[in-house]
Each structure stands twice: as structure tokens, then as C-alpha cells.
Amino acid sequence: MDNSVPLFDFAAVWSSRALLLEGFGIAMFCATAAIILAMIIGLFIALMRLSNSRILRAFAFVYTQLFRGVPLYVLVIWVYFGLAIVANINLPKIPAGIITLALLNSGYLSETFRSGILAVSVGQSEAGAAIGLTKRQIKRFIVLPQAFRIVLAPSGNQFVDAIKDTAILSIIGVPELMRMAQQQADLFYRPFEFYTTAGILYFIAVMGVTKLFTFIEKRMSRIGFTNSSQKLTNVGEYI
């Protein structure tokens, strides 16, 4: 190894800190926007899967299977390049990235929501019906608020995955953390330092979100909101 060049040189990373932090901000923005969208879509799909209409159920089933099966790399290329070719829809990079992540995560979240809704005891809906609530009111005031608390932890995991997945958006040129790290690594010819730094930043983001959700969950269980026996376990489905 050349003696004139230090083995580790993080000075270049420090000099590009503004760009890296900007990328970090964009990554977090994409993940947050995508997960909010995904929760809205996912809730609708989950309700469709539990509805009485066979067509809605079939549609929701195909939707979840499709978006749980498609690799993110393929999906992002379809949304960004494919839509432009086929439908002449030219999305800007960041919205294309957010839509892609939202579609992908809505597939997973709808399954989580569905099992969350099913995990609320039938007695709850029956009690609701007994005091004269309509079906709609039972869903809105009895089942969904309880299901929300059950799905909180798995949704946190999904958020973590969305943060990790933003790295792949660099393929279509979204100027997020990984993209910035790649550019700067090429510029300074210091890939090890830049990718290590990027990794540390992702780690901090993931730990932060994990801690945040654990905190919220603890708070809710302290005031009697969550029932730990109803918690869903979902290790392994997400990478």
C-alpha cells in the first residue's frame, strides 16, 4: 500500500458532509412519505380483503400477492421507465421513488392490517352490535382503534424496511444518501470511507425509528392500550 496515502481518510467524508446529510434527509423524507401512503392504501386493501364482495376480495388478494412478490428493483424500473414508455407518464424521480416504495409496502401492510383486524376478538363486534351500533360504526369505533394498537409494532418494522429500501432508489437517480455516497466515493476514490459512513447513517436511522416505536408501544401499554398477547410476530418476512 502506498505510504503517502493514509489507510483511512475520513477527511473527504467530512468535507462532503452537507451532501451526505442532504441525501439522508431525502431518504428519510421518501421513506416517511411512502409509509404514510402505504398505510392508507394498505388499510383500504385490508378492508377489501375482509369485505363481502367477492370481486373486491379477489382484487385485494391479487394486489397483495403482486406487490409482495415483486422485487423492488424491478418495480422501481417499471414505475420510472416503464410508465414513461407505455403510458407516457414521466414522473419526476423523487415522486416515482415514493410511489414505488408505497406500492411495495402497501402490499405488506395490508396483510399486517388484515391480521390485526382479525386479531380483535369477535366479542368486541358482537358487543358493539348489541348496543345498537351499525356495521360501519363497529368498524370505525370498535375494531379499527383496537387493531391499530396491534399493528403498531409490525408497522414500525415496515417503516424500518422502507428506510433501508430507499437505498435502491439510487438506481433511478433519486439523490438520496446512497446516491450521494456513490458520487462522492467516485469523486474522492474513497469507497470504503463513504460507504461505511452511509452504513452508519442508515444504522442510526433504523435504530432511531426502532427505539421510537418501542417507546410508543411502551407508552400505550402503560396506559392499558395494548394487550401483549395480541401482538403479532412477523420475523423473517422482510429483508
Binding site: L7, V160, A167, Y202
Partner: peptide, 25 residues
């Protein structure tokens, strides 16, 4: 295990292929 679960695969891939290989030959 925590670190492994927190790193995006994409970052890991670049870190190993470009970062590690280049740094440690």
C-alpha cells in the same frame, strides 16, 4: 445481528465489493 439487520443490502453490496476489496486488496 442488529447492525446486519439495519444495513441496506445495497449498501452492504457496495461496501464489500468496492469498499472492502479496494481497501484491503
Amino acid at each position: 445481528v442488529q447492525v446486519g439487520r439495519s444495513l441496506p443490502l445495497f449498501v452492504l453490496l457496495f461496501w464489500i465489493y468496492y469498499g472492502l476489496s479496494l481497501k484491503f486488496k
